[in-house]
Structures are given as C-alpha cells and as structure tokens.
C-alpha cells in the first residue's frame, strides 16, 4: 500500500486523468472545470447584467457536484493518502526559486510566500492572488475552456481551437514565469 501514499508518477496519474475524461463522457457529460465559474455567476444573479449568464444552470448541477467531490478528494488525499514526502523537484528549479525568494520549494504543494495568511494580508500578497484568479477566470471563459476542457478534452478530440488555446496557455505561462515572476518576486 506504500505506493498509494507516495507521490504518484506521471505514467500513473496521466492515464487516470484520461479515465476521468472517459467516465464523464460515458456519463453523457464532458470534462470541463471552468464552466463551473460561469455557473456560479449565473446562480449569483449575473444574468441581470449579461445574457451570457442566462441559461438553465440547474442542467449544470452535475458539474458542481464534481467540484464538491474534488474538494473532498483533495482533503482525502492529504489526510489519508499522504506520507508527507516532499515534491521531488529538479534541484535547478529549487535553486532558481531560492533566487526569487522562495525558500521551501517542494516542502508543501503551495509556496507559503504566496498562500500563507501572513503573505496574503498585505497589498502585494492580496493583489497577487486577486490578479491570478481574475486572469484565470477571465482568460478561461474568453478562450472557452481551461486545462481540462482544452488541453485534455479538446486535444484528445483533435480540435484545432483547443490546440490554439493550449499554445496561448503556454505563451502566457512562459511570459509570467520567465519575465514577470522575476519582476514581481526578484529583489
């Protein structure tokens, strides 16, 4: 059972993600997590401001249930299926991160320098989280999907729009990682 508690290698995780796609398609649905953000807007009454949010959100309840499960899954994974091992990052990554002021790379899933309350409750920390979330929410709807909808489902279904979107994901990610993160965190 030890293998369950250790980090899972890519050749186990990747196929299991494909299985999630397969199960959802077999259930007559699709794999797309970002649609839930639109559903949440609709539930919150955003239909008053844009027709984009005027749809029968109850038909998308199943996807919100997937989200609920995902939250519980995250809890189960760290509580019962974890042996506390660190993330085996490339030593180069660890040293690059140290230069940016991230000192515990791989000790936990997320850097304390961004997500700990001590980092969140000042103008810079709060701005980082809000800007990150806003860009993801805005960009994903503009592009009509996220990692699950475009990168996994769309590419699996051989859709050209998804390939363009994934090129965009990488363009943005590379600009952030190589140019903007050093400006934001570098000293």
């Amino acid at each position: 059972m030890d293998f369950l508690l250790q980090p899972w290698p890519w050749y186990v995780s990747g196929p299991l993600i494909a299985l999630v796609l397969l199960i959802l398609v077999y259930f007559g649905k699709t794999f797309g997590m970002s649609s839930n953000l639109r559903t949440l807007c609709s539930i919150g009454g955003a239909g008053k401001y844009s027709d984009f949010f005027k749809f029968d959100w109850k038909a998308h309840r199943w996807n919100l249930i997937v989200v609920l499960g995902a939250i519980v899954g995250g809890f189960i994974a760290v509580t019962f299926l974890s042996d506390g091992s660190t993330i085996p990052l490339n030593p180069e990554t660890v040293s690059d991160l140290r230069e940016l002021g991230f000192y515990d790379a791989g000790e936990s899933l997320l850097p304390a320098e961004i997500y700990d309350w001590g980092s969140v409750f000042n103008i810079k920390g709060l701005t980082i989280l809000i800007v990150a979330g806003f860009l993801v929410g805005f960009g994903t709807r503009y592009a009509g999907g996220c990692t699950s909808g475009h990168a996994i489902t769309g590419l699996s279904n051989l859709q050209l729009p998804s390939l363009i979107a994934v090129v965009g994901f990488f363009a943005g990610g590379l600009i952030m990682t190589h140019i903007l993160l050093p400006l934001i965190f570098g000293t």
């Binding site: 806003f134 860009l135 929410g137 960009g139 994934v166 994901f169 363009a171 600009i175 952030m176 990682t177």
Partner: peptide
C-alpha cells in the same frame, strides 16, 4: 484568452 489564462495559471499556480 489562452494567453491571459496562462499568465494567471503561472502566477497563482
């Protein structure tokens, strides 16, 4: 849209 998403993805992870 994809690029905007990518910027946020790499910032917030």
């Amino acid at each position: 849209g994809g690029s905007i998403f990518g910027l946020g993805w790499a910032l917030g992870g």
